[in-house]
Design a binder for these strands. Structure first.
Lengths: 157, 157
DNA sequence: ATATAATTGACAGTATGCTGATTAATTTGA
DNA sequence: TCAAATTAATCAGCATACTGTCAATTATAT
């Protein structure tokens, strides 16, 4: 027998594949729930972080929500084009762009928040209450302890 | 008091955000482990599925590993350009393109498999053995039961 | 048999998410 | 002080991941 080839891996049992699928599902539910607001999950995350920390620059925003710093450029550009944030040249450091949420941005954030909360409930809906607590603890453990290996590691406050 | 605005949500406690972060981390580990093979996670998944089911068409491949059918087009195009798969016009249905792994593709799949397995171990490394079993069970439950709501639901065999 | 439906794959367009290079501004160090 | 290193943002380029649309092909229904 010249059987030099290993059998294909069963993808649907690999953690990486399960994680990719779950992410795909979570994004799908988010877009379904917030269809009327024309905001992507990443745009929501950025808007939420800018609201929480006004005057943040783009690198700071990357660190706060773990985006690649190049990706953030396009995201804030689109948020600015929609009138949801302002971008001002930094006072202390003119290389930076300080980010501020606009009144319109605040109103959208308020309006979309219930949809975002419904999204989280729908994602976890298949699990029993105790399992939901469990999975959040395990996901948090995986994310925080693998954080150093991530491409865009979270910076602590 | 005219406090009409709710406080920003704590992103790092939202399931959707944790899932996005974990996916980002998993992809990063995959690319790190398989750097020398020049294959992305999605390309690996497609190659693995084509190996397991030779003659599959592109829609069938989408259904097997939950890709959008448009996304698959570019993926198989790049796999074909690298000489890892063949694409032939379907005999029974000339609309389809039947996908076959090449000998070169099989060899790459063999070579990359240990790296893919190491990737899975690194993803789960922060967890104790019992927690690893738990999280896989919970992820599988979330994925399979939310599958109908996904944009690219898995088709059963 | 033939008009209509549905299906496969392709294409255009948009939005992440990354690499690597470049520019402008600031900081460091000899 | 002034050249060198560093940093913030941008740009070009590539690969997912989705929407919609379209042409070619097949299935259906009268």
């Amino acid at each position: 027998m010249d059987e030099t080839h290993s059998p294909p891996l069963a993808l649907d049992q690999l953690p990486g594949h399960l994680i990719r699928r779950l992410h795909q599902i979570a994004v799908g539910i988010f877009l379904d729930e917030s269809r009327q607001f024309d905001l992507t999950p990443v745009q929501f995350a950025a808007l939420d972080a800018i609201c929480a920390r006004p005057g943040l620059d783009q690198i700071g925003l990357s660190g706060a929500i773990a985006f690649d710093r190049t990706t953030i450029g396009g995201v804030v550009e689109r948020l600015e084009a929609k009138g949801l944030i302002d971008r001002r040249v930094g006072q202390a450091d003119r290389r930076t762009r300080e980010l501020y949420i606009t009144e319109q941005g605040r109103q959208l954030l308020d309006a979309i928040t219930p949809a975002v909360l419904r999204t989280q409930e729908r994602i976890l809906y298949p699990l029993a209450p105790e399992e939901r607590r469990q999975v959040l603890i395990l996901l948090d453990k995986l994310v925080s302890q693998n954080n150093p290996f991530s491409r865009s590691p979270i910076k602590g406050d």
